[in-house]
Write a protein that binds this DNA or RNA. Sequence first.
DNA 1: GCTGCGGGCTTACAAATGTCAAACTGCTCT
DNA 2: AGAGCAGTTTGACATTTGTAAGCCCGCAGC
Lengths: 327, 327
Amino acid sequence: MGGRRHGAVQERRVPVEFGGDPVVWSAWLYYEEGLTQNDIAQRLGISRASVNNLLQTARDTGVVTIAVAPRHLQTVELSQAVTARYGIAECLVVPGVDGRRTLHERIGHAGARLLAGQLRPDDVLGVAWGRTVSALAEAMPQVDRPGMSVVQVMGSAVGSERFTAELCTSTLAGRVRGRCIYLHAPGIVSRPEVKAVLMAEPALIEQFRIIAACNRIVFGVGSMQSISIASDGGYLLTAREANPAIARGAVASLAGRFIDAKGRLVPCSFDDRLIGITPDAIRAVPDRLCVAAGPDKVLPIRAVLAGGYITSLVTDEATAQALLSQP
Amino acid sequence: MGGRRHGAVQERRVPVEFGGDPVVWSAWLYYEEGLTQNDIAQRLGISRASVNNLLQTARDTGVVTIAVAPRHLQTVELSQAVTARYGIAECLVVPGVDGRRTLHERIGHAGARLLAGQLRPDDVLGVAWGRTVSALAEAMPQVDRPGMSVVQVMGSAVGSERFTAELCTSTLAGRVRGRCIYLHAPGIVSRPEVKAVLMAEPALIEQFRIIAACNRIVFGVGSMQSISIASDGGYLLTAREANPAIARGAVASLAGRFIDAKGRLVPCSFDDRLIGITPDAIRAVPDRLCVAAGPDKVLPIRAVLAGGYITSLVTDEATAQALLSQP
DNA sequence: GCTGCGGGCTTACAAATGTCAAACTGCTCT
DNA sequence: AGAGCAGTTTGACATTTGTAAGCCCGCAGC
């Protein structure tokens, strides 16, 4: 009632002269002019709660950007130590907190920030598959890069719908408002012959041509322990198939392929049934961002670092520390 | 005491592993992880007030960036109307508020934001002189553009120390961490011969070569009413010198020269005693940002718009409205 | 060794902000 | 016309944040 009367008494809410989007106005008045939400509410003839909502919207839609410059995070000692020791271009180490967000979400968030700062207008960005990559896509701020292409680099899973390769790709493409290019093929097929047939398809040949043109790629890395989880999703492999690889030294899975502690490919029975980017092709991409953290990821991360698959790493405090303790 | 005892009892917070700058750390936890200042204080083992201070520092030093995307401000109808009607590339209209900041400060602030978003690594930025330009320089956020040059395009005044051309230039150069290039000459000299002598100096020839190389320029615009003010500063002209020009239709001063309502140069007795960029040279710069607002600036802004001296305009609500009302 | 001084940290308080259930709008459908 | 409904907006409240006066500590001078 107070509000109603107030409004009725005199002012034309959002009056004629009030030229535009109240979201933009309030964002400006609040973040740039330093007015309080109260002042703004009065000016606009709406309640303070509404102003609060407008500001929320402004943040959500990217009208205002609040960001910690990633280069400052890199000044943290841990980051620099990792960068120096493993000879990569950059490393982001996020603080280990025990809030309600999962580790994946926090790493993904940081990765998104880093990525957002790096994207150039005409980038061709390859996107792999995984829980952390998915979190990264979700956390990606809205940035306009209409000239960009976002490319799915691993075939699709059949199982769970929440972390599919397509979803990672399309979410990310949406956030940058770029072109979204799917890989229309299963991630793993039943027989090598099927793969051979598919790979001969013009559509797939074209797709792999685009994949080879990526100048940037985002991926996670799997531990051998998580293979069983992956198989739950019906995606990749059963532990039965993985065991022989483990026996031959495999410590990590990178885009579905196994590598050993030195980063060397461990050839496997199912390699010729996988459809997706190869580790060698990853290494050919100029900027290669790996997002991964957790105790079980320490060895895998070491492996991809050793293999030279990474130029940028996003991880957390504990994992970084483990990476730095004696091999 | 709570705090003291607590700290003494057991833990080294901010432990060895705490790799870095508490400013960066708290900024990340607060702005990216969404923890409250309380949570952070606990984690870091300091008081919440200190965390608040750290965050303040983080904002001041540019560790976190909070910005309203200028392109959203442009969506405000007024901006669009001005852009359409006068055929310029962009126009920023800031809300008219009656806070404690002056009009100059608010316009300068907005201009700074716009400029910050436009600057490219190798820009050569020309800087004129004026109250609003000065405010722009002060409000400029810290951005690293080490490859940039910032060039003074008008000779120096003798009078007041607060708004000198050198100060505008050097402040701006400092904010972008670019090279600062002064114009070592008076803005106006006593006799044409003096100007001729100066302009033959190799140092000045070089300077004007650099000025001609600007790909971007920032300037204000003077009204004929403000001439008397300018003369107070001992800078430009006396009303006595200006009057004949007014009689011949001058409505605005642009970098010391007078122009009429159509934007045409009004030749004056003192033109050959002014040292600085010419209006024609301004028009040769690709990106030309004009910052100006106020009732007395409406005619002058119309004039520079008519003359095609502007590609980007920053002004306020009232001025934009006046610009849009029938000529 | 005592005393006075400056910087930074803290405590306590006042102001500003976020949240949520309830009220209100502008619709559509009967 | 009236009821029902989805999406906003609002007022009240609990939490979070900003701030300023005071405290503590290390240091220089006596």
